[in-house]
Design a protein around this nucleic acid. Sequence first.
DNA 1: TTGTAGGCGTTATCAA
DNA 2: TTGATAACGCCTACAA
Lengths: 337, 337
Amino acid sequence: MTEVEKAQRVRRGMERVTMMDVARHSGVSASSVSLFLRKPEAVSAKIAPRIAAAIEKLGYVPNYVAGGLAAAGSRVVSVIVPSLRNAFFSETVSALEKNLSRNGLQTLVGHTEYSLEQEERLVRAALSWAPAAIVLTGNDHTDGTRNLLLKTATPVVEMWELPDAPIDCAVGFPHEEVGRAMARHFIARGYENVAFLGARLDEDTRAASRARGFMEEMREAGCKAQLISDPAPASTATGARMLDAIGNDVRAVACSNDIVALGVLFEAQKRDLTIPDRLAVAGFGDLDFAANCVPPLTTIRPQAEQIAETVANCILNRESEQRSYRTDFALIPRRSA
Amino acid sequence: MTEVEKAQRVRRGMERVTMMDVARHSGVSASSVSLFLRKPEAVSAKIAPRIAAAIEKLGYVPNYVAGGLAAAGSRVVSVIVPSLRNAFFSETVSALEKNLSRNGLQTLVGHTEYSLEQEERLVRAALSWAPAAIVLTGNDHTDGTRNLLLKTATPVVEMWELPDAPIDCAVGFPHEEVGRAMARHFIARGYENVAFLGARLDEDTRAASRARGFMEEMREAGCKAQLISDPAPASTATGARMLDAIGNDVRAVACSNDIVALGVLFEAQKRDLTIPDRLAVAGFGDLDFAANCVPPLTTIRPQAEQIAETVANCILNRESEQRSYRTDFALIPRRSA
DNA sequence: TTGTAGGCGTTATCAA
DNA sequence: TTGATAACGCCTACAA
């Protein structure tokens, strides 16, 4: 069979250019090719260019599947987030991918749509790839997920939250404290009748923690605080809708996140409620628009990049096991509250 | 070695529960276990429960790496997008993942940050996983990428755009027409001095196509149209900044996308420019806030879900090769323009 | 219906 | 430095 014929068969998916083909073509053994691919300097200057030329000519693409099997462990990291549509997580995944790919690791994403059962299914599938690590969001998992993960040797990182009993590593910050910080900000400004507007709190346990911290701190300060909750996902429409549910005498609202807060801003504008004089508004996330909207939004900046970097470090330097890393967050006061 | 000992070794990563272990434990052969896993009904009612019990007890997780090698083809689909931070693509990836995982396919994402060289690297890595398919964004690729993909038997889908010469399948819509549609809308409303505000047009070739279509249609109608371009990524800040660059007599602006348009809305509000009386604004994307902002935003709805579904179909029904599928888009007129 | 044998394309271990 | 050889864990014939 000529090389042209082989190329045709390859294109039709009947065959595939293997390391052995490269070896034959350059007159060396497959092991030398393998060695060249992993440590080019370990092979003599005589055959290196021959191998390189053969790879180029034959269009050889290494097969990581076979490599992973032989080496007992693949170069993929499985990242499981609640939703990619959520800016926090798409940003985290984005930053994580950047950090990992720099080190030759690839990212396999899954999203749970906030379902713990779906998460378990994804974890099971992820484990099937013998990944270099598994990254999960939060600390709320089914028993099945937990058992699966406790039983495996695969490094596990839980992110965006700090569990009391981490499965392995954890990177995040305490959301209750975020809620408390926002509450103290409100108290300092003299807002004594306030509300928390929460979207999908049953599923978004991090937002629920923020709500809890906020409510507690407020009540401990003797303020009147009500918790509004909408089962719909966070959106500007949800924010606008929740504004209907609060009493006329509420002076300030803390929102699930900036999207919800933006909805409140718009709705307030429609109703001619002056912000912050008539109603103060705060969000969470410091998304792109928070600094530019009218008025600019008081919010909490959570440092998604720092989380991603720390997670990547956890995975790359495996010496540091079973540790929890706390990342920063900062309250950014702006004109809206 | 007792089972407890084995479990310990597994946890330490020294060993792994294989199909053979399950087979031994349930007193059948490995092929029966394999068969059970793929076609549970093909195995006798006698041994099926025994196998199931052993899998459960041993915590067996199938190894897709080995499976993929033996079956010559893995169950991953590699999806490469410019950026996950961009709502269009995170939504597409999200919808795609949903459609694919329903059919037992997993999603491997990569993002290029709008670099064609990075895309080539990602394609090379993707190919190494012997994926079931590769999904790319747009039709602008390096020669290397194109050659790599032309040479392989792996199905390729280009999405979000309709190339003149697709590599394999393509799913999307013509962005020039989107720009023209927006221009016609402006013309119908009597806006005769207009501008296009483009973010990162050198890299975002789809936005550039929209800009081109818009400008051409406008000029063909004898209107005055200027093209503003900012090298920064699309953001509200970029939108606000670009508003500075247009002349005082411009009556309407079409934006790269809704985020940029939102920035314009905010900036206009700061300057007390009434919208749409003093300045009409239109976006692209129909993002969450477009219907709720003040005033609501005239925009183009691109149907990311339809794209994702069609791409998934292309991958799942391989009979339909080398076809281009055109997806819908619609101009949504709202108060801003 | 169940079991046996061979092979998928690499990597790791040794010996030369 | 290089090359032969044995895994890696599973799937797919084929045989029983």
